[in-house]
Design a protein around this nucleic acid. Sequence first.
RNA 1: UCCCGAGUAGCUCAGCUGGUAGAGCAGGUGACUGUUAAUCACCGGGUCGGGGGUUCGAGUCCCUCCUCGGGAGCCA
Length: 431
Amino acid sequence: MAAVNISGLHSHVGEIVTINGWVVTTRSSGKIAFLVVRDGTGYVQGVLSKKEVPESTWATFAALTQESSVSLTGTVRQEPRSPGGYELGVQAITLRGASPDYPITPKEHGTTFLFEHRHLWLRTRRQAAVARVRHEVVQSIRDFFYERGFVLVDTPILTGAIGEEAGNLFATDYFDLGKAYLAQTGQLYVEAAAAALGKVYCFGPTFRAEKSKTRRHLTEFWMVEPEVAFNDSDANMRLQEEFVSYVVSRTIERRRDDLKELERDTATLERVQPPFPRISYTDAVTRLCELGSDIQWGQDLGGDDETLLAQQYDRPVFVFNYPRQVKAFYMKENPADPRTVLNNDCLAPEGYGEIIGGSQREDDYDKLLARIQEQGLDPEVYRWYLDLRKYGTFVHSGFGLGVERTVAWICGIAHIREAIAFPRQIHRLYP
RNA sequence: UCCCGAGUAGCUCAGCUGGUAGAGCAGGUGACUGUUAAUCACCGGGUCGGGGGUUCGAGUCCCUCCUCGGGAGCCA
């Protein structure tokens, strides 16, 4: 007899089937016993009656502990008292793997303990729900770009000293060429690919050696970075609002059960539809000062400023054209106000902060070279990047969206380390 | 790097102005035929983060180091 998945039990009512899975809980009242088993597709309750099963089966049940792996054979019946709505009248139990002293109990645990046991914690309902939401977010990202004719270009993870500050790069020895660095971004490469293919994106892990200790930072995180030839900053923001709205609406539509498990109020997510409100950096500073912030023109927005500003809107908000001195060298100077650049951040509501950073790129060879030198970067390292402005320069723009921040926001979870299966943080390299 | 906070049973925590270490859960044993984190009874379980100091006496007070959590900066 072939084993069936718990999610497919509804089509086997009245039949004898076998399911394979792990024991969640056991309960016994002397002559009747219950166990809940999960198999990754769902949860089901099994029931055993002492007088209806062989003594050996009753003994096997008695020895089961949390997270033992088992095969259960029994009759499927509809039963509202069982989680999932179906129940298995158990006739036989095979113990596949014992599980003595399972560390994660049904009671509460601290976050340090849970992350130390992340490899086991993933088995719980909430963590599995987050994993499925992430899966949907990732698939919707790929589908969005696929459906719109973008070409996926995989950018290198081992790079030369490309990026921003060298202090934020993870270094590793690279044969006779000295140091290689783990990529902080694929953007510069994707700009080269845009000149070849028009609309492109890269999607992969990125690495930042920042000693950040906040709920919004990981040292390894996933980022999707589209880049579009002949898109200006305005078209870039339109692409972003369409993109974010697509990902959010598709995820809440297809992962409703998981968001319910996470007790996420989806009302705020339903409102994520274009157009998103837009406010210039300069206007944002004025507004923030009215709201009690002590930010001054020229400073970057702090975490509290972002939250305060985002609270003024019922959906994500764009803040555009920041002062050039707080932004990266590759952003295009604003012709209308050279103190600023043609960029934008996208701030998620509910205090989740910056989920996107985007910009139109500097396409003038001389200005780009000047910026590189101004920031003390080595022009020789960026020679190939400068070539893009030397041979048929073009207006282009793009952005980067952080997957974990987006997943955390959609799930309504407090810390982005729960939005990835095995988070990497300053103090965490295990498991 | 800076500012807060926390380290006591396998886990989550309590432990007062210093006086020989506690609970719940988990584990073990037993009772119970429809349980939902089942319930009830009993049992085992401790280098109180490390080191030093004050004291007749330190989980508790002082010094120091370590580890972890939250926040800032930086960013997605």
